[in-house]
Design a binder for these strands. Structure first.
Length: 549
RNA sequence: GGCCCGUUGGUCAAGCGGUUAAGACACCGGCCUCUCACGCCGGUAACACGGGUUCGAUUCCCGUACGGGUCACCA
């Protein structure tokens, strides 16, 4: 077989040589040890936790080592591509603060190793595809979907491995005449397959940076390199791009592990150096009694949009993912509560090998901590932005008087033990709605020791000549005095010693006030609340409560 | 089914031949000059199983079980 002639028949338009292509991608001029990583999503319009998970790893690895983190768009599957898919990707990464040093941008490319959209690189893959044909390492295949399905059936019946290999590789040894005939028949359309010399009896050894040493049978499948539209499969694109773009570390999910032998083989066939691989553990969820990989179709909580809608902060999601990514992160965070995330020394060795359950409880806990560390100003900005998007009615109230809203958010904020009651912005309305008269819809639930007439008596006594106390201490002294005057125990300790001697205690009295003012039994510091509301509105609320009794 | 990866409390996990087997979340109890949210103190709870190797295995090896992933002209 004259492979050179075959190559020319198959790729008549390809005139470039591999050397010419290579010349455009010189080794990167980076300091020793600098890592080059990439995020390589498909523009499916769907960004999920797994994307973020990997991207954080990529970004940290690159930027912690003085390297390069770039974005490559894997748009080789036109069927799955959606309008605006690239915009979505860019938007998410900018939202999450994971800056690319180079790669695809909205209006083109940024960087010297482009183009960064695989479809725009089609010609390049063909150069290398042609070159492989010249070496006898690749060949055209004309099998139809039906033929492939028939092969599969046969294999299933014979209990043999699936795939295009050995005697099932129908077009592996076509003669030049046969190829020409098929080519004429197909109108020049073919699929380029790799001619594997692998033998499953032999094993390849391999080291993954997180999984450690591994051994696989060699790949004997003649996998597809170029699809019938001339666009490469993931496998070929990965090998060509990561070589040319000088990627040093490939971070991807462990679902790629089974195809690793293919990639190793391809790199060898091309005569290129293998990048380092980091196969990350998968994000799982509990389904019924067992764990399973989070699924795009079944699990809404896999989508990043879900968290944005709920009002999780960007910081808390990154923070949580980091706890899954590096086992010593939490320890570090406890020791460095205020340090920026990027100050954490990310370490591949601290990455776990087995899939982790995505734990919403833990996320919420982290979220509360993150939100509690925000200043009132920051909290207001984030909340207002969220509401603007997901609850415009609430947004209108919030932004009507920013200073007022900030003051609400400032209650219990700051200091050593900040309040931690808001985990996500979606909860904020329920937390602070009573501050807005428009939203104030009390369902008076009086404390057990002071219902009905008792509650009314307390309210009437307190509201009678109500004036805003000077400070929290004065306020509570007043409540105590009121409690005592009505026969309630003003001292909790005394009350606990003889609970039967009193109708209730000062706690009950203040609870009545709280219920009247806020419409609920739980609230932040009542004095602060009243101060913000102002004497008039507080009074009005007392009267409203009295009227209801 | 073949191949691959994994298995320490409910969850995330530390551990890397000898430990009272950390810590975090969740849960439960107590304390915290008004509730809640915090905070503090305490508690329940784990090395999948069976063989080896070894003076000694959570740790090393083999097997079993279980879980997961993957077997496309998708990535």
């Amino acid at each position: 077989m004259d492979y050179k002639a075959l190559a020319d028949i198959l790729f008549p338009h390809v005139t470039q040589t591999p050397e010419e292509v290579e010349a455009r991608y010189p080794a990167r001029d980076l300091p020793e040890g600098a890592k080059v990583t990439r995020m390589a999503p498909s523009p499916t319009g769907f960004m999920h936790l797994g994307n973020l998970y990997g991207a954080i790893t990529d970004e940290r690895l690159a930027h912690q080592s003085g390297g390069v983190f770039y974005l490559r768009i894997e748009d080789t599957d036109q069927k799955r591509e959606v309008e605006g898919g690239v915009e979505k990707i860019l938007e998410v990464f900018s939202e999450y603060g994971l800056p690319f040093d180079e790669g695809a941008t909205l209006d083109g490319d940024n960087g010297a190793y482009g183009p960064y959209r695989q479809r725009q690189r089609a010609g390049m893959y063909q150069v290398f595809g042609k070159w492989l044909v010249e070496q006898g390492k690749a060949y055209p295949c004309f099998c139809s979907e039906e033929e492939l399905a028939a092969i599969r059936e046969k294999q299933a019946a014979a209990k043999e491995n699936f795939g295009y290999y050995g005697k099932y590789a129908l077009h592996r040894d076509l003669s030049m005449e046969e190829i020409e005939a098929k080519l004429a028949q197909s109108g020049g359309v073919f699929v380029l397959r790799f001619r594997s010399e692998g033998d499953t009896e032999r094993r390849v050894k391999f080291t993954d940076l997180v999984k450690g040493n591994m051994e696989f049978p060699e790949n004997d499948q003649d996998i597809v390199l170029l699809k019938s539209d001339g666009i490469p499969t993931y496998h070929f694109a990965h090998v060509v791009d990561d070589h040319l773009m000088r990627t040093t570390h490939v971070v991807r999910g462990e679902e790629w592990l089974p195809t690793l032998p293919v990639h190793v083989q391809l790199f060898q066939a091309m005569g290129w150096r293998l990048p380092k691989y980091i196969h990350t553990a998968q994000l799982m969820k509990m389904d019924g009694g067992s764990k399973r990989k989070l699924s795009k179709r079944k699990d809404p909580e896999l989508a990043l949009d879900y968290y944005r809608e709920q009002g999780y902060t960007v910081a808390c999601l990154k923070e949580y993912l980091m706890t899954l990514l590096n086992s010593n992160f939490e320890e570090w965070r406890i020791a460095n509560p205020a340090a920026p995330l990027d100050a954490f020394p990310f370490n591949v060795k601290k990455m776990g090998v087995s899939g982790s359950l995505f734990d919403l409880d833990k996320l919420i806990d982290i979220s509360k901590n993150v939100v509690s560390r925000l200043t009132a100003e920051e909290a207001y900005d984030l909340l207002a932005a969220w509401a603007q998007r997901y609850d415009t009615e609430f947004a209108a109230l919030l932004t009507r008087d920013p200073a007022y809203s900030k003051a609400i958010l400032a209650i219990g904020r700051g200091g050593k033990k900040p309040r931690k009651d808001i985990a996500v912005w979606g909860e904020a309305k329920a937390y602070m709605d009573f501050f807005f008269d428009e939203l104030f819809q009390p369902e008076y639930a009086w404390p057990e020791n002071a219902t009905g007439a008792a509650a009314k008596q307390i309210l009437e006594a307190y509201a009678g000549d109500f004036a805003l106390p000077e400070d929290s201490g004065a306020w509570f002294d007043g409540v105590k005095a009121l409690a005592a005057s009505l026969g309630y125990a003003a001292d909790m300790k005394l009350y606990k010693q003889n609970p039967t001697e009193y109708p209730g205690n000062v706690g009950d009295v203040s609870m009545v006030l709280r219920v009247a003012v806020t419409g609920r039994q739980n609230s932040p510091d009542l004095f602060e609340v009243m101060k913000l509301l102002g004497a008039d509105r507080v009074k009005a609320r007392f009267n409203r409560a009295i009227a209801s009794l």
